[in-house]
Amino acid sequence: MANTYTQLYIHIVFSVRGRESLIRKEWKNDLYAYIGGIILSHKSKPLAINGMPDHIHILIGYNPSTPLPALVEEIKTSSNRWIKEHHNVPMFSWQKGYGAFSNSRSSIDKVIRYIAHQEEHHRKKTFREEYLQMLRDFEVEYKNEYLFDFQEILEWS
């Protein structure tokens, strides 16, 4: 793509199937490094990767040469296989779907800090609360039945 220039920042969020707490502290940094390698192999830049035992946040400098759904699918499929093979978690899998939110250049430092401080953040707010807040903040229309396995949301609505 000659003479094509982009500056795209995407914050990606997805969870472990059933929101089970299967991502272990002992190997989460290796997982994040592995995911960073996948992102680099698709000509995007991993800017921040962190999460909790039941979900993950990834901020990338996005190169649109790979469609975003294909990139996220590759991250989920490859990391799922890697976790099973390297950390003996045979029941591990990511939930279907993901959230992807665009960010301006001026907000990148704030998003990086937000991702870096997930443990602090989740002392006050559940993943469900966090994710719904992101959907509201970015004015994303959604249907409860298509959200992650948030059974309490269906009862709450």
Rank of each mutant, 00 (worst) to 15 (best):
P53C: 05
E119A: 10
S41D: 10
Q95N: 02
E73K: 14
G36I: 05
K76N: 05
P69K: 05
I112L: 10
N80D: 10
P46V: 06
F92T: 01
Q118P: 09
A48M: 11
R123W: 13
M52A: 15
I75K: 08
P53A: 09
K110H: 15
Y34I: 02
I112E: 06
P64C: 08
I49C: 11
E73A: 15
M52S: 11
I10T: 11
W82D: 06
H121G: 04
P53W: 00
W82L: 01
P67W: 02
E73W: 12
K76I: 03
R24N: 02
S106Y: 09
G51T: 09
P64R: 02
Y114L: 13
N88R: 03
H117S: 13
D109H: 15
V13F: 01
Q118E: 12
W27P: 08
K110C: 15
P46M: 06
I60S: 05
E73M: 12
K110R: 14
K25P: 02
H121N: 14
I115K: 11
G36P: 10
A70Q: 10
E74A: 13
K25A: 07
Q118K: 12
F101Q: 01
I23E: 05
R17P: 01
S107A: 14
H11G: 13
H122I: 02
I49H: 08
H117I: 11
K28N: 12
E26H: 07
S104I: 14
H57W: 06
G18Y: 00
S106Q: 14
N63H: 13
I108P: 09
H55T: 13
I49E: 03
I83D: 02
E120D: 13
S93T: 06
I12P: 03
G51W: 08
S15N: 03
Q95A: 04
P64H: 02
N88L: 05
H11C: 15
D30C: 06
S21W: 00
I75D: 09
R19V: 00
K45F: 15
W27I: 04
L31W: 11
S41W: 14
H86V: 00
M52W: 01
E20N: 06
N63C: 14
W82A: 03
F14D: 01
I39A: 12
L47G: 11
H122A: 07
N50K: 12
S79N: 08
S44D: 04
I115W: 11
S106F: 08
H55M: 05
S79P: 10
H55G: 14
D54P: 03
G18D: 00
A116K: 07
F14S: 00
N63M: 15
I58G: 06
D30V: 08
A48Y: 10
H57A: 06
L31D: 15
P64D: 07
I83H: 04
H121Q: 10
D30T: 14
M52G: 07
S15W: 00
P64F: 04
A100P: 00
H87P: 08
L40M: 11
F14L: 01
K28H: 11
I75H: 06
I108N: 10
L22W: 07
E85W: 02
Y62S: 07
T77P: 07
L68D: 01
G18E: 00
G99C: 05
I108H: 09
G37M: 12
A116L: 13
Y62P: 07
S104H: 10
I56H: 05
A100C: 06
N80W: 02
P90G: 08
D54A: 04
D54V: 04
